[in-house]
Simulated scan of single mutants.
Amino acid sequence: MSKTNPGRFFEDYRIGEIIPHAVPRTVSGGERALYHALYPARHALHSSDEFARACGLDGSPMDDLIAFHLVFGKTVPDISLNAVANLGYAEGRWHRPVWAGDTLRAESEVIGLKENSSGTSGVVWVRTRGLNQNDELVLDYVRWVMVRKGRPDAPAPATVVPDLAKAVAPADLVVPEGLDFTGYDSGLAGERYRMGDYAIGEIIDHVDGVTIEEAEHMLATRLWQNTAKVHFDATFRPDGKRLIYGGHIISIARALTFNGLANAQIMAALNGGAHANPCFAGDTVRAFTEVLDLAETPAPGVAAIRLRTVAHKSGERDHKIKDQDGKYLPDILLDLDYWAFLPQ
């Protein structure tokens, strides 16, 4: 009997099944340092204990995407080891900060299944929860993945497609306990722009670009313990290329938004997202962001801004992302819809 894990295939999932994921991970300051080495991340709240304390927190929490990547990585052996593609996200929320010393674990519930017409794969929807050492919810999100079938003749399960919200409602955003932006120091943060300086429909070009390096994306994928074969094994794809982990693009895009959105300090919710086209080493990532909505929160001085950040691999371009048939243009890498907290 083989002791190795070949991963799950489409026919192995059942609606309502709860999958606990191995292995818990204790977070240290090393993750913060590596995150800042891998991405051009400069948001002040995640960089400075003193800045964070002035904003009402006990110190500087881990970057929100560190929590996302760590929890996501835990799910890969059970959800996407045999994935063809990671298709999208919805209904994601960060519920509390992650601090050095916290231990994170993850579990997923299967909430949707649909076999593809080819009969060789199907789409699996899961709701994943990241919990800390006190069993407190750190973040949760829905994602859906196209997964290969292990046996082409395996019977298709009954189709269940979950009804997902287009966006998290502002009233459902969770503000970190104690967060207070009434004494916010714009000079230390790097920009003066606050809620009143942004308008719905405004588009911000973030100017900078980052060229993907093979070594950096491999280091990042190992850091998050993501074991998906498409990211490691150059023989797994017919073209002999290792696919860049989509979360790597999310973090690069988020970091690029600093130039124009330096005060969007905390990611609060993940409304939706699509990895529109594959990315490979040598591609240069650039980004622009559209302001979709603005909202107040009960926390002193804290507002929420809904953003749509688009990462692409072109030079100067317009802001069109889809063709006349509604298909993403070939240079679009990421289409990410999320809420963030910024000062009023």
Rank of each mutant, 00 (worst) to 15 (best):
T4I: 13
N5P: 06
F10K: 00
F10C: 06
E11A: 00
E11Q: 03
G16P: 12
E17W: 02
P20D: 10
V23H: 15
V23N: 12
V27R: 01
S28T: 15
S28L: 08
R32C: 12
L34R: 05
Y35I: 14
Y35R: 14
L38D: 12
P40M: 01
H43Q: 15
A44H: 12
R53K: 10
M62G: 06
M62F: 08
L65N: 14
I66Q: 01
I66H: 02
H69V: 14
G73H: 02
K74M: 13
K74T: 12
D78V: 09
D78N: 08
A83Q: 00
A85V: 12
A90R: 08
W99E: 10
G101V: 15
G101A: 15
G101C: 13
G101N: 09
D102H: 05
D102P: 15
D102R: 03
R105E: 11
E109P: 05
G112F: 01
N116P: 07
S118E: 13
G122N: 09
V124H: 00
T128K: 00
G130C: 07
Y141G: 05
V142A: 04
R151P: 04
A156G: 15
A156E: 14
P157H: 02
T159F: 08
T159H: 10
V160W: 03
V161D: 04
A165Y: 08
K166A: 09
V168E: 01
P170E: 02
D172A: 12
V174S: 02
V175A: 13
P176C: 03
E177D: 09
L179P: 07
F181P: 03
F181E: 00
T182H: 11
G183N: 15
Y184S: 03
Y184F: 15
D185A: 14
A189P: 05
Y198D: 08
Y198N: 07
Y198A: 10
A199L: 06
I200F: 07
G201M: 05
E202G: 06
V210R: 12
T211N: 04
E214W: 02
L219N: 04
T221W: 00
R222W: 15
K229T: 08
F232P: 04
T235C: 06
F236R: 05
P238Y: 14
L243F: 06
L243E: 03
I244N: 05
Y245W: 06
Y245P: 11
G247M: 04
I249F: 05
S251M: 06
I252Y: 04
I252E: 02
R254P: 07
R254K: 11
A255N: 08
N263H: 10
Q265Y: 10
I266S: 10
M267R: 13
A268M: 07
A268P: 14
A269L: 08
A269G: 12
N271T: 06
G272W: 04
H275F: 08
H275E: 03
N277W: 11
P278E: 07
G282N: 03
G282F: 00
A287D: 07
A287L: 10
A287G: 03
D293V: 02
E296W: 04
G301F: 09
V302Y: 01
L307Q: 13
L307M: 13
A311R: 03
A311K: 05
A311L: 08
A311Q: 05
A311M: 10
K313D: 10
E316Y: 07
E316T: 07
R317V: 04
D318Y: 01
Q324N: 10
K327T: 15
K327Y: 14
L333A: 11
L334M: 09
D337G: 06
P343A: 13
Q344M: 11
Q344N: 10
Q344F: 11
